[in-house]
Write a protein that binds this DNA or RNA. Sequence first.
DNA 1: TCTGGGGTCCTAGGACCC
DNA 2: TCTGGGGTCCTAGGACCC
Length: 388
Amino acid sequence: MHLDLDAFYAAIEQRDHPEWRGRPLVVGAQPGGRGVVATCSYEARRYGVHSAMPIAQAARRLPPETIYRRPDMARYAEVSQQIMRLLQQLSPLIEQVSIDEAYLDVSGLERLIGTPQQIGERAKALIKDKTGLTASVGIGPNRLIAKLASETSKPDGLRVVEAEQVQAFLDPMPISVLRGVGTKTTPRLLAMGLKTVGDVRHQPLERLRQALGARAGTALHLQARGIADDAVQPVTQRQSISKETTFGEDVTDEQQLRETLHWAAQEVGYLARHQALAGALVTLKLRLQPFETHSRSRTLSQRTASDQLIFQTAWELFASSPWRGRPVRLIGVGLSGWEPAACPTQPDLFAASEPQPSTLTTDKLDQTLDAIRDKLGDGLIQRGVRRS
DNA sequence: TCTGGGGTCCTAGGACCC
DNA sequence: TCTGGGGTCCTAGGACCC
C-alpha cells in the first residue's frame, strides 16, 4: 500500500491559517526571487501551476490574492513524524520514502487489523482525525502499482488495483508515469512512436535496450508489464549528506564564496556527526551561467565529519578548478562514502587505532561547538561561527 | 520562461592491478 | 616490441524523484 499526503506543505499552511483556505497558496520561492514552486494548493493548481514550476512563471499565472510562503521544513517534518507514528498502528512494516509518502506492507493482516482496503480507509480516517489533513491511498500487488493507484486517486482518494487488473490499469497511461521516464526520456520514447505504457509493452525488449541502454531499457520493459519490487524496507541507510545554496544574484567575490562554502561545510559536518557518520568523499558542487552544473570530488585517506576538513577540501577543489573567477549561481558541498554498512566479518581495525592529529583536534572542536549549539540554539552559534 | 534543495542511481572513461 | 581480458576504484556528469 502506498500513502501520499495531498499538497502536503500547502495543506499544513492552510490548516494552520484558516484565512488562507480556499485561496491559491504557493509554498516555495518568493515571487520576484530565484526559485521554484515546492507545493501549491489545489486552488493554485487550477491556474496550471505545479511543483517545480519557476516562481516567475507561476506568479504570472496566479491572481494577486495568491499567498506565497517560504517552506517551514521543521514544521512539516514534525507533522510528518506524527503521521508516521499513527501509521505504525496499522502495520509493523512501514517505509517512509519522503516527507509526505510511505509504503506499508499490509499483507497478512486480515485477522489482526483488516483487509488492505480497510487498512487504507483507517489510515485516511486516522490522519484526517488527528491532523486534519487528507491523504491518498493506493493498494496493489507491488510498489509501482500501489504508487500509481494512489496518484490516480488524488486528492483524498483510495484505489485498489488487483493483480488481474494491472495490465488494463497500466496500458492506457502515458509513458511519463513510469519510474525513470522524465523530461529527457519522454521525447525520445515519443519519437519512437511510444505514447502509452501499452505501446512500450508491445515493444521488443532489444529495441528498448538499444534506445535507452541495457539497464533502463530492461527496467522499462518490466514496468510496462507491471513487474516491480514489492518489498517494503523499513530502514535504509542514507548515502550522502549535502548542503547547497543558490545566490539571489550570481557571485564573483571569492570572500563571499568562501564564507558560503564554510557555512555549508559546517552544516554538513554537523549533520554527519549527529548521525554518527563519517565520509571519505567530499564533493564540491557549482552552478554557473547559463545553468551549467559542475562537480569536483576528492576521496580522502580517512573518513571524516570535520567541518574544517570538509571545508578545506571543498575550497581546494574550487580553487584548483577551471571555473575559478566565473560568476557563481550556486555553490555547495556534499559528504558521502561511509563505512560499508554490512561487513561484519572484516572489522576495520585501523580506523579506530590511527587517529590523525589534525583531524582529531578539529573533530573535537566541532563536537564542542555542537554541544554549545545544542544548548544555546542553532541560530545564535551558527552566526558566530560563520563570521569567524 | 527560467530553472530550489536534498537526495538516489546509472554511465563511462581512465587508472591500476593481476 | 607489442599488448588480452577482467575486475575494481575513482571521478565527472546526467537523469530523475519528491
